[in-house]
């Protein structure tokens, strides 16, 4: 087995271990929530017998480690339990919401990542020019405003005043992809404005950091154009930090969009989580938490693996 294969496998194993640790923490956290779940759901007027029966039905009379192992076993079989509120299987509730969230995140990412990396490269190429300052200023202004504020501004101008886009992002795949993209444009744009600055500035910084290397001076002295210096000589050596910041922002697009979903009443995972927390629907809270953790860990592991593969020292041993 080559060095890089060992490293990649090690990183994957570490990711799984992290996911396991997160599931444990999450379970313990919910365990420490104050109050008795069965009592709360049934209300104050329930008789102790009813409460006890309900506890037995939910399995709450079992010791915590048994319940954790039960739950973990269910997860491994793809069974996340049933919702306490509706009694329907959690997987049925989460499935369409996850698809919606991934759709919105993918929509935003497909525009934001190329835009941010492109702007970052151009800012590095023309650094300390008006373009560089303008791009930095614009990106920083966008990130400095809270996302709900950006969302309301966009609604005010693009929806209410200009009437270009709907205020509510009701998604209906049946009416075709163009309609779906149109309906979700405002939440996607909000997310783009929030994530571009971070990725752009990191790209610019990573490239400028590499530009100080002797091999960049060497490339210039070979008569290589500035654009080629940035794209061919600097970018491959700056990939690791760029990939990492991109992964971080992709993860944010999936797990951090609760506010945007609420503003546009978009039926995504974040909304589901908020509703489940307020109705104490613990199986859903646990399941959504696990999905978020898995997304976060997977993207970070992928970024790590991509940086390893981008490094010729690891790709080709000496």
């Amino acid at each position: 087995m080559s060095k890089i294969q060992r490293l990649v496998l090690g990183r994957l194993a570490l990711g799984l271990l992290t996911l396991f640790a997160v599931s444990l923490l999450m379970f313990a956290g919910l365990e420490f929530l104050p109050g008795d779940l069965a009592q709360q759901i049934l209300g104050q007027s329930a008789t102790p017998d009813t409460v006890a029966a309900f506890r037995a039905e939910l399995g709450l009379d079992q010791p915590p480690h048994i319940r954790y192992l039960d739950w973990l076993g269910g997860v491994a079989r793809g069974d996340l339990g049933n919702s306490l509120a509706s009694g329907r299987p959690v997987t049925d509730l989460i499935g369409p919401r996850l698809a919606n969230t991934l759709f919105l995140a993918g929509y935003a990412a497909a525009i934001a990542v190329p835009l941010a990396v492109g702007l970052g490269l151009m800012a590095a190429l023309w650094r300390n020019t008006a373009f560089d300052r303008g791009a930095n200023l614009g990106a920083l202004s966008a990130i400095s405003m809270p996302e709900f504020f950006v969302a309301y501004l966009l609604i005010l101008f693009l929806s209410i005043k200009a009437g270009l886009f709907p205020t509510l992002a009701r998604i209906d795949m049946a009416s075709g992809p163009v309609d779906a993209l149109h309906a979700t444009f405002l939440p996607a744009l909000t997310l783009i404005l929030v994530v571009v600055a971070h990725m752009m500035r990191m790209t610019r910084a990573a490239i400028i950091n590499v530009l100080a290397s002797p091999y960049i001076e060497m490339a210039r002295l070979k008569g290589v154009s500035r654009r080629r210096v940035i794209l061919v000589h600097a970018l491959p050596n700056a990939l690791a930090p760029i990939v990492n910041v991109v992964a971080l922002n992709l993860a944010y697009l999936i797990v951090g969009v609760v506010v945007v979903e609420v503003v546009f009443s978009y039926p995504g995972l974040g909304q589901l989580l908020v509703d489940a927390v307020s109705s104490r629907d613990l199986p859903i809270v646990q399941a959504v938490g696990l999905v978020f953790a898995a997304v976060y860990i997977t993207l970070n592991v992928l970024a790590d693996i991509a940086s390893m593969i981008a490094n010729p020292r690891l790709r080709h041993g000496s």
Partner: peptide, 24 residues
């Protein structure tokens, strides 16, 4: 000037290890 660099004028640096691009 760029058309002269590498074509009619070229440079050999002190540290070859640092002056070759590690990615290519």
């Amino acid at each position: 000037l760029r058309r002269l660099h590498g074509r009619h004028l070229s440079y050999v640096a002190q540290s070859a290890a640092a002056s070759f691009n590690p990615a290519h």
